[in-house]
């Protein structure tokens, strides 16, 4: 199944992913509830939450100087813009250009930077703690992400996200399977780090001292909080989508099957995250860099395998 250029279908898929993204958190929560023997919140709970929040009036800290108000908007827009470069299912992004993968990574970085600044803008010590940890982990995550991009660039001989993720490029006979597995594993770790999921950050903790992402957004309420939730779900969706495209099997029948397989894989990753969160405890903060450097080593090993074998 080669890539096809169909802008209409691409936009449809893009809009669908904007709509479906918050569903992922519902799935994760359902999986965790299943493991915990609970009934759990409804699948569409995040939609209800966001709807309720978006109709409220905002409330901002007296300390803040505007960055707090600006950050959710910039984060949301940057994430949406980053999503524009992801090929939807099997269709090339209409906005694809050479080097858009760098732009993609840096837009996610922009979103992160604004969240950090907003956290520091509140003057809260908890927010500062969260921001400091986020800045720390993101340095390593960025390095791993770019190592993965290098791997893909060598395979696809291009630095355009739509070429890098072309379904033909990775799961092909010429490329050693362990290399692909290593890269996919490292990317899954990156998904967990970037979305502040469990072995790195506990999204459900009630203790501010152990939070990362939650500590940074302590001071948000109303429409801003809705935007932040939405941004988080979009980010999770887009990274899962990238991994799904990496692993999409070569032979998927027609366009419809391809798109369905793509969506099924994304849902499967959400379930995977739910399982990981159910069976793992949060790492000590000191341990996190080791894991990230380890995944960097894994990706570099994959590059070596790719180049030499």
């Amino acid at each position: 199944m080669m890539y096809s250029v169909n802008h209409g279908l691409w936009w449809t898929i893009f809009l669908a992913s904007l709509l479906l993204a918050p569903l992922l958190f519902g799935i994760i929560n359902k999986v965790k509830a299943f493991f915990g023997g609970r009934c759990g919140p409804r699948l569409l709970q995040l939609y209800y939450d966001m709807f309720k929040l978006s109709r409220k009036a905002g409330i901002f800290s007296r300390t803040s100087s505007g960055v707090l108000q600006l950050a959710p908007i910039v984060s949301l827009l940057a994430t949406v813009m980053a999503m524009l470069f992801i090929p939807g299912g099997l269709f090339r992004s209409p906005l694809a250009f050479g080097g858009d993968v760098i732009f993609f990574c840096y837009l996610l970085g922009l979103s992160r930077m604004l969240t950090i600044l907003a956290a520091m803008d509140t003057g809260s010590s908890f927010a500062g703690m969260g921001a400091s940890r986020e800045a720390h982990f993101s340095v390593l995550a960025e390095a791993v992400l770019f190592a993965i991009v290098v791997f893909l660039a060598i395979v696809a001989r291009s630095i355009c996200l739509s070429d890098l993720l072309s379904p033909l490029s990775l799961v092909t006979p010429g490329i050693s399977v362990p290399a692909v597995l290593l890269v996919a594993g490292a990317f899954f770790i990156i998904i967990l780090v970037e979305n502040c999921r469990l072995p790195f950050d506990d999204p459900e903790t009630h203790l501010e001292l152990t939070m990362i992402h939650e500590a940074m957004i302590l001071d948000y309420a109303g429409p801003e909080l809705a935007m932040i939730h939405y941004t988080a779900s979009l980010k999770l969706w887009s990274l899962c989508a990238v991994l799904a495209l990496l692993l999409l099997p070569q032979r998927v029948g027609g366009a419809l099957t391809g798109v369905l397989a793509y969506l099924a894989l994304i849902v499967a990753f959400a379930v995977g995250i739910g399982v990981v969160e159910s069976i793992m405890a949060r790492y000590r903060f000191l341990k996190v860099p080791h894991l990230l450097v380890g995944s960097l080593a894994a990706v570099l090993t994959a590059v070596l395998l790719l180049l030499f074998f």
Binding site: G109, I116, L117, A131, V139, E142, A143, L145, A147, L296
Partner: peptide, 20 residues
């Protein structure tokens, strides 16, 4: 590439520090 990515991340941290 890896150095640029790392430097980028560290620069974000450094400038976030200054601004905040």
């Amino acid at each position: 590439i890896i150095a640029l990515a790392t430097v980028g991340g560290l620069a974000v941290a450094a400038y976030a520090k200054v601004i905040s």
